[in-house]
Simulated scan of single mutants.
Amino acid sequence: MAVLRTDRPQRMLAIPGVYAPQQDSHLLMQAIRREGVGPGMDVLDLGTGTGVLALGAARLGARVTAIDVSRRAVLCARVNAALSRRRVMVCRRDLSAIASSFGGRYDVVISNPPYVPTPPAGLLRSGAGRAWNGGHDGRALVDQVCACAANALRPRGVLLMVHSGLCGTETTIDRLTEVGLRARVSDRMLIPFGPVMRSRLAWLRGQGLVDEGQHNEELVVIRAEQP
């Protein structure tokens, strides 16, 4: 179990198999603050992991529900909420349950889903890699968020989702537009490849996802608003 420090003086626990907060988490948290999340607002965190974003929204005064399909992530987020003395409802749910369980209830939906393109032998449904493996094009979970987020949002509600540009920024915007949301890129950040990306660099180049000599990826925050 690791003890992590976020950009605030808060200690976060991360257990093996649960995604530890990194640059993408911090980039998305900046967007959440800028969105004006605060008291009286209802926020849904899809794929909460350690709960860092859910707790960030709760510290701003929002009522927060956080879901994850991983039992480890749910446990981790609940422990972090208790340690932080913040009220966050943490549930073990699959994204497919969003439409029936959370229809039209939220002002803001946030998500940092697994999005790393994954070779066929990579684990998607179990193991430690579940925290970052996103399927062959990185979009297995990104597309699920695109498909279900609109059902969870109130009128004028907003989705904020972060992912790598390697899995298709314009594709995400198109998917969200198809379900009736007004989508755009709100934030960008260029970062060096991390250990997971470096470990599969040859495969990524073979798939045409990474150019020869490329050692950085762009992170993007997609903002999509319900009319």
Rank of each mutant, 00 (worst) to 15 (best):
residue 135 G to D: 08
residue 21 P to C: 06
residue 93 R to A: 12
residue 202 A to W: 13
residue 226 Q to M: 10
residue 88 V to R: 00
residue 110 I to E: 00
residue 190 L to M: 13
residue 54 A to P: 01
residue 196 V to H: 12
residue 211 D to A: 14
residue 203 W to M: 11
residue 66 A to N: 06
residue 50 T to P: 09
residue 202 A to C: 11
residue 41 M to R: 14
residue 29 M to K: 00
residue 197 M to K: 04
residue 149 A to Y: 05
residue 63 R to S: 11
residue 131 A to P: 06
residue 66 A to F: 04
residue 222 I to P: 02
residue 2 A to I: 14
residue 45 D to P: 08
residue 135 G to S: 01
residue 115 Y to C: 01
residue 146 C to F: 00
residue 6 T to G: 15
residue 223 R to C: 06
residue 186 S to V: 12
residue 23 Q to Y: 05
residue 16 P to F: 08
residue 64 V to L: 08
residue 94 D to K: 05
residue 18 V to N: 04
residue 84 S to P: 08
residue 151 N to A: 07
residue 169 T to L: 10
residue 102 F to W: 12
residue 201 L to N: 06
residue 126 S to L: 14
residue 68 D to M: 09
residue 30 Q to K: 13
residue 13 L to V: 15
residue 186 S to G: 07
residue 139 R to C: 05
residue 63 R to Y: 09
residue 70 S to I: 09
residue 10 Q to W: 14
residue 201 L to W: 03
residue 40 G to Y: 09
residue 193 F to W: 05
residue 9 P to M: 13
residue 181 L to E: 04
residue 166 L to Y: 03
residue 155 P to E: 01
residue 152 A to F: 00
residue 14 A to E: 07
residue 1 M to Y: 14
residue 111 S to K: 03
residue 202 A to H: 14
residue 221 V to Y: 02
residue 147 A to C: 11
residue 203 W to D: 04
residue 60 L to T: 03
residue 30 Q to T: 07
residue 56 G to I: 02
residue 176 L to M: 10
residue 40 G to P: 09
residue 136 H to T: 05
residue 210 V to F: 06
